[in-house]
C-alpha cells in the first residue's frame, strides 16, 4: 500500500500531508492580521473571495519564529470545518511512500506534539513527519494570545 504525500519544509524539517487533503498551494500569501486571535493564527487570507484563516505552522509546532526576509508559502488544506491555510517555509515534492516505511512517533516526542505528528516515514537520508490535519487545526489547549 502506498500513499501520496505532499511535502513541505519548516526549519529544515520535512513534513508531509496526504495529498488528498490538500486543496492548493499559494506562492504568495497576503495576510490580514486579526487582533486578539490565538497566537497560532497568523491572520486571514482572501482565497478568491473566500475568507480562510491562516495557521502559522511554526507557531503551532513550537518552532522558532520565521525570519521576516523569508515570506511563507501557503498550503490550503481541506478539513471538516472547511478550508484552512497553513503557513510553511517552502514546498517540497509530491511523494508516493510505502506504508512499510512508516513508524510511529517515538515516546520522547513532546507530549503536546504527539497528536499532531502521528509518525514519520523513513525516507532515504530524511524523515518525513506525517501531520494529522485535524489535530494540527485544533487549537484547544494552546496558550492563547488574549491572556
Amino acid at each position: 500500500m502506498t500513499k501520496q504525500f505532499s511535502t513541505f519544509y519548516l526549519q529544515h524539517l520535512m513534513f508531509g500531508v496526504e495529498s488528498q487533503n490538500i486543496q492548493e498551494v499559494l506562492r504568495t500569501v497576503e495576510l490580514t492580521e486579526v487582533p486578539l486571535a490565538p497566537k497560532a493564527i497568523a491572520g486571514l487570507m482572501n482565497l478568491r473571495g473566500q475568507i480562510v484563516s491562516a495557521l502559522d505552522l511554526r507557531q503551532r509546532l513550537e518552532l522558532n519564529d520565521r525570519q521576516k526576509a523569508h515570506p511563507p508559502t501557503g498550503v490550503v488544506i481541506r478539513t471538516v470545518d472547511g478550508l484552512m491555510g497553513l503557513l510553511v517555509d517552502g514546498i517540497g515534492d509530491v511523494m508516493d511512500v510505502d506504508e512499510s516505511t512508516f513508524e510511529e512517533s517515538p515516546e520522547t516526542l513532546a507530549p503536546q506534539m504527539r497528536s499532531v505528528i502521528v509518525g514519520v516515514h523513513k525516507l532515504k537520508g530524511n524523515l518525513m513527519h506525517v501531520l494529522d490535519t485535524s489535530s494540527v487545526c485544533d487549537l484547544k489547549g494552546l496558550q492563547d494570545a488574549k491572556a
Partner: peptide, 27 residues
C-alpha cells in the same frame, strides 16, 4: 458579511469579515 473560521468565532468583538473593494480583508 463572511463568517470567520472556527478558531476566531470565540472572539466576541468580531461579527465576521469582508472583502473590500481593493481586495483586502477587513474585520
Amino acid at each position: 458579511v463572511k463568517p470567520l473560521g472556527k478558531h476566531l468565532k470565540g472572539i466576541r468583538v468580531y461579527a465576521g469579515a469582508t472583502i473590500m473593494g481593493d481586495g483586502q480583508l477587513a474585520l
